[in-house]
Design a protein around this nucleic acid. Structure first.
Lengths: 160, 160
DNA sequence: CTAATTTCAGTCAAACTGACATAC
DNA sequence: CGTATGTCAGTTCGACTGAAATTA
């Protein structure tokens, strides 16, 4: 319970963007995990609820594509969310392979709560940055992500 | 083997800095993991070798503090590195609780190789950014990390 | 007695793999 | 037939927990 008592970090590491990003992501993940846990949820719950709220009732496979969560993990997450009555799983009459997942009013209320918590979390994470810096960071990361998602069908090709 | 075929992502998510950072870190981790694997190593190996190269022969506990790797994981990592003769584990005559870990010449050669690979990886990750943008991203992340490491002894206090 | 160090066994969330049955 | 879908079991990596033994 004493946090990472990090002394001096090797310069080789602290200069590496990959290291900086991973470490920052670690702090971000902790903030998200703990913030969601405080409301009885976890990251996957928020992502699935957000996907359903924005893209309407969809199949689990479509939900997987929209959220970036693997289909097999969608199964478990939807199981949990049906358990708390936040979503409903129904057979698709037009394609009997599919389950159509729908967010319930209770699910929307939970999503609203989680949205509020998420806003707090962003603020906690970006606390030391000015509004301009926050925007710039967001812009740079969006650029990176766009690049790696576009060329990311064949993961990394120039490093063998 | 088909990569993340992500369709449209919920705006709720794609605007969140925590999401952007986590996703970017995912790409970064894959680049690092695969780059290290190409040389028969993994992330922890690089971090331990870098720590030893920069801070000299130290105990495992000190190595843990310098690298941010948990002591229990240091044990396993040092085991693996002794297996490949990259480091040596010796009893500390002045404190019989301690093991003193020393990097070997072979370990230094491996670290040099890994350093080269790491440089490639940084370039692959930051490909779409200009040199100025790369510097700015590094600066912003360093600011964030400094803030959260400093106030990070009692992990997040304002979110309950 | 308290505290630091090493070690082991195990947990956790997120991401991912492989296999299988079913339906298109 | 090949492909999409849902499900299950299991794995991986990094981070972390809890406990035990030893020594300071």
């Amino acid at each position: 319970m004493d946090g990472p008592v990090t002394t001096a970090v090797p310069a080789r590491m602290s200069r590496l963007p990959t290291w900086l990003i991973s470490q920052t992501a670690l702090h971000a993940s902790r903030l998200v995990a703990d913030g969601m846990a405080a409301l009885g949820a976890r990251g996957y719950h928020y992502r699935v609820l957000a996907g359903l709220a924005e893209f309407g009732p969809v199949s689990q496979a479509a939900l997987s594509r929209h959220t970036g969560i693997d289909v097999s993990d969608i199964v478990a997450t939807v199981n949990e969310l049906t358990g708390s009555a936040a979503v409903e799983r129904a057979a698709d009459p037009t394609d009997r392979r599919r389950n159509i997942i729908t967010i319930t009013p209770a699910g929307r209320r939970q999503l609203d709560e989680l949205d509020g918590k998420m806003a707090e979390i962003q603020d906690a994470l970006l606390a030391p940055l000015t509004p301009g810096e926050r925007a710039e960071l967001t812009r740079l990361l969006t650029t990176l992500l766009g690049h790696h998602s576009a060329s990311g069908q064949d993961r990394y090709s120039g490093l063998g």
